[in-house]
Nucleic acid binder design. Structure first.
Lengths: 341, 341
DNA sequence: CTGTTTTTGAGGTACGCACCTCAAAAATAC
DNA sequence: GTATTTTTGAGGTGCGTACCTCAAAAACAG
């Protein structure tokens, strides 16, 4: 027995192909009663639309845009690379990609770009931008225009986004805390740094980190978060200063970006040999630091999965197809020196 | 400008569609000179065959079989589940699946099943079986019949298999060693257990584990491997006995299956509260043990990825398409209590 | 140059679906 | 009842490819 087709539905339901087509594609001009009859047959014989044939027929081209922060961030770089790779290798077919870099600190600029994308006839937008009221409204407008909108890496929970693709940052922080606690030998202080505590990610990570440290490793003293405000110079200066002032520091948790500056400052400091450094995201910098032993662990999300997931989900949303959650779940990856890959 | 089609090739090369078809599908009856001309145009305009249209046209149905060990193993169970899930959700389309469970300790039975699959007109076989000369020959026969053959989870390096889908077990063992060393507090003994040291996986894991422990954590004494020979009763008995006899044991590394029996025995023993237990594969048992704290870490390979990867790779092999290595790389997952997911 | 073989062209059908038109049938309103 | 609207049927075309046939053209042998 082969896969049922529209012909099978028509025969079983005692209607014509045209009617089946009208029902399947929600075209008007069919009695409720007939719709129900066709639907019943569809359910009974287990018909599923052949997406490939359907796309072939309708000459479907998915127009997707990725809105990423501009600037020199390494994580964004690896993300853009993964995107190019996924696109080039036709993991997802029939997709016209557009990657836009925006100055995320300027909400108005983000809004302008999103508005432009809406008018450009995009089918879906994946964005990685901080949550601001302006962005929230722009997302709502995109949704109103019928676009699929997904947030990647950093969620926009209060917006109308269809989906968030990324890790649970509270759990990521808890994982960092667990690792830190188990890796630390003697009681001491733990320095926590980030580029910005205004970012939801850092907030959630800190929450999780503190919860685990307080509950299970109370012998350590967790210092208040130090912020670099995305300024490498500032990061280096502060870290150097704190390290000099607080010799009891035995661990450093880096919740955000700016690891290059952080590691540079640590190198310059008279840091203890058994300093435990835990950070986020696998980049050339953190990779090298794991290899050299300067970092003990990195908590990552696989950027390849991230972009492929984003592409698949936007497609599913466009096709109004259900999303296969298990495949799209982005896991919290734990990277040590030995499993960098 | 749209995606180039066979029509574009025909026009550009000044030949007919029939000739283009003959060249693209390596059918006979075309002069070398003409083949070269058509190929040149294909390369120049960047034609790529539309797999969806192609499969639609040729009514392609991929017949794949998975050969898995029979018996009550939890890992195989989760694998079979993931397989059913991937199949049901049409992650891969146009695939007729067949899952066969074989008594892997009986090489002749495995050979019989493989021979039968070859005759049943399969397009590809994914197998998870120990490496024996008989199996190696059977794989060679399948290859000779033109089937795609991939090894999953456990490699068959000396065979003709097209691809191995799974983790690097040496690196997995090294990762286990690194975690064990960092998690252990006081110097002591480490118990290493497995179901069978005849399995290549356990051998490689032990090698990696020892290398890291010896080089970086020489203060601990790593005991010889204890084997259960797939017998839960034996596992329980041995572990209980060893734990009683060696009070200095501070860590346990479980390289293979049989974690349920192991954990049961540990629970029954007067184990130290800070015992570090590291094992492999995320199963209901190890998951619960992570949650309860009985296990400190699990080294896993995502079974969902494993089966999806196997399906994609078999398809690519059948289509003679290149494999997108980056997506198929199975990473060594590190699972702690906080990132179980 | 003729006869034979090889290569090429032209055209068709099919795959499963989307989308279109026009006419026929059925349901409804008056 | 007839007039009108709504619903349905029948049929077609195209998407990009595979695979088939038959005839025409070209290349080659003698």
């Amino acid at each position: 027995m082969n896969k049922p087709t529209v012909h099978d539905i028509a025969r079983e339901a005692g209607v014509s192909l045209a009617t089946v087509d009208r029902v399947l594609n929600a075209r008007p001009g069919v009695r409720e009663e007939t719709i129900a009859r066709v639907q019943a047959v569809v359910d009974r014989i287990g018909y599923v639309r052949d997406t490939f044939a359907a796309n072939l027929a309708r000459q479907r081209l998915y127009r997707f845009a990725f809105v990423l922060p501009e600037g020199p961030g390494q994580f964004v770089g690896t993300l853009a690379e993964a995107l190019a790779e996924a696109h080039a290798s036709h993991v997802v077919d029939r997709v016209a990609l557009r990657v836009v870099h925006v100055p995320t600190q300027d909400p108005e600029a983000v809004v302008r770009v999103l508005a432009e994308l809406g008018e450009a006839g995009m089918d879906g937008v994946a964005l990685m931008t901080p949550e601001t009221p302006q962005v929230r409204d722009a997302v709502a407008r995109l949704k109103a225009d019928g676009l699929a909108v997904v947030a990647i890496a950093s969620d926009l929970p209060s917006s109308m986004r269809d989906y968030f693709i990324g890790i649970n940052n509270l759990a990521a922080g808890r994982t960092a805390g667990l690792l830190m606690g188990r890796f630390l030998r003697d009681a001491g202080e733990v320095l926590v740094v980030t580029n910005s505590m205004r970012s939801r990610d850092s907030l959630e990570r800190r929450l999780g980190f503190d919860a685990v440290m307080a509950a299970e490793f109370p012998e350590h003293r967790i210092l208040p978060s130090v912020e670099s405000f995305d300024d490498p110079g500032r990061m280096a200066a502060i870290v150097r200063e704190v390290m000099a002032r607080r010799p009891a520091i035995r661990g450093v948790y880096s919740m955000g970006t700016g690891n290059t500056a952080l590691l540079g400052a640590l190198r310059a400091s008279a840091r203890p040999g058994d300093l435990v450094v835990v950070g986020h995201e696998l980049t050339p910098t953190t990779r090298a630091a794991l290899r050299s032993g300067e970092m003990s662990a990195v908590i990552a999300q696989n950027v390849g999965h991230l972009v492929r997931s984003a592409l698949r989900i936007m497609r599913a949303l466009c096709d109004q197809r259900p999303i296969f959650e298990a495949q799209e779940q982005i896991r919290i990856d734990l990277i040590l020196r030995e499993n960098i890959l």
